[in-house]
Amino acid sequence: MDISQLEAFIAVYQSLNFTKAAEFLHISQSAVTARIKALEITIGKTLFMRDNRNVSLTQAGMAFLPYAERMLRLFEESKLTVSEQFENYIVISGPGAVWHYRYLDDILAFRRNHPDTALKIFSYIDSSYMVRDLLLDGTVHIAVRYDPPDHPKVSKMLLFEDEFVLVSAQKNLRVSRLDFFSQRYIHVGFSFPEWFSEMVGPGYIPTMQIDHSGIIMTLIMRGEAFGFLTKSAARSFLDEQKLFLVECDFPMPEINKIQAYASFLTEKHDNPSVQLGLELLGVK
């Protein structure tokens, strides 16, 4: 098994077409076919079902896919790690709103103070996947996550506390419980904290859910909706009176504060990339 075979496998999976995969890789179709066959011989399984019209992954191909993606990702990261262009290389991950609204100035300052350090930031990737796969296999040095689960190989350090606030671009807006079932309400993310479930009751399905804070912010700012944002994301807009706190005409349950942690492999604590990442995040 070599990198060219993995690249061919991913290209065929993404295009579901050997000709298009060959065009993407700038090689002949016969070369793509040869690489896939060689990979299937190495794996001992057929990875694609093919006929004159369709290409699709077999069960073995679907099982192999995440490993192929991870091996390619690790290969790309290894090239950067051993590169002589930079003294250090950091990969960190976390929700987009964290970087945009809390650490943007820190990122700019870090780049000025460490011109010989390359920085890669992942955002809007499933946080469970980020810890379970990217952090554990070493692709990511530090993962920022709200209330991360415990893991025997992972250490975590508290970064900050935050809380959710209900906001709208409309001043003096007052909503009822039924408004949370209307098209006016947009829900952040795809899960419901315990306090929210208590408020809306069992079986609740919002009319819209989005896991991208920038999109939600835009919709709320345009006056199209109201919704919960983290206080750190909403603070400057509240101060400038571009957003306003929303009042409820019913008793709201207590909204628990959320805690953001920097997670990293315990055995890598003294690694320069981890230490530099913690410096960027203000951990001393």
Rank of each mutant, 00 (worst) to 15 (best):
L158Y: 07
M217Q: 01
F180N: 05
G201E: 00
D211G: 13
F226L: 05
S168N: 09
R222Q: 15
A225W: 00
P149T: 07
L136V: 14
F192W: 11
P193L: 06
L229K: 07
A225T: 11
A143L: 11
R184I: 00
I216K: 07
S155L: 03
D126V: 10
E194Y: 09
M208K: 15
Q170F: 13
D150G: 01
T207F: 02
V140F: 04
I186K: 14
S191Y: 13
I216L: 14
S182D: 10
G189V: 08
L158F: 07
Q209V: 12
V188K: 15
D137L: 00
P152E: 07
K153W: 03
D150L: 13
I215P: 07
Y146K: 10
N172C: 08
D162C: 10
L178S: 15
M217T: 11
I186M: 12
L135M: 08
M199I: 08
S213K: 03
V131E: 06
L135G: 10
L178A: 15
T207I: 02
S182M: 04
L158S: 06
E161R: 00
S127P: 03
R177Y: 03
Q170W: 00
E198C: 11
Y129P: 00
H151A: 04
E194C: 12
L173Y: 02
M221F: 11
V131R: 07
P202S: 08
F164Y: 09
E163C: 12
H141F: 12
Q183I: 01
R222W: 11
L219C: 11
Y146R: 13
M217W: 02
N172D: 15
P193W: 08
M208S: 13
D162A: 00
Q209D: 08
L173H: 01
D211A: 13
R145P: 03
K156Y: 04
S128H: 14
E194L: 15
L173G: 02
P206C: 02
D211K: 04
M217R: 10
R174E: 15
G201H: 09
E161K: 05
P152Q: 08
G203R: 10
S127Q: 14
V144L: 11
F160V: 01
R174K: 15
G203T: 07
G214T: 13
S127T: 08
S213I: 09
E224V: 06
N172V: 13
V167A: 05
G189C: 07
I215E: 12
G227M: 01
R184K: 12
A225Q: 03
G203H: 06
S197W: 03
P206F: 09
E224S: 13
V175N: 04
V188S: 15
H187D: 07
P202C: 03
L135S: 03
L173Q: 00
F190V: 10
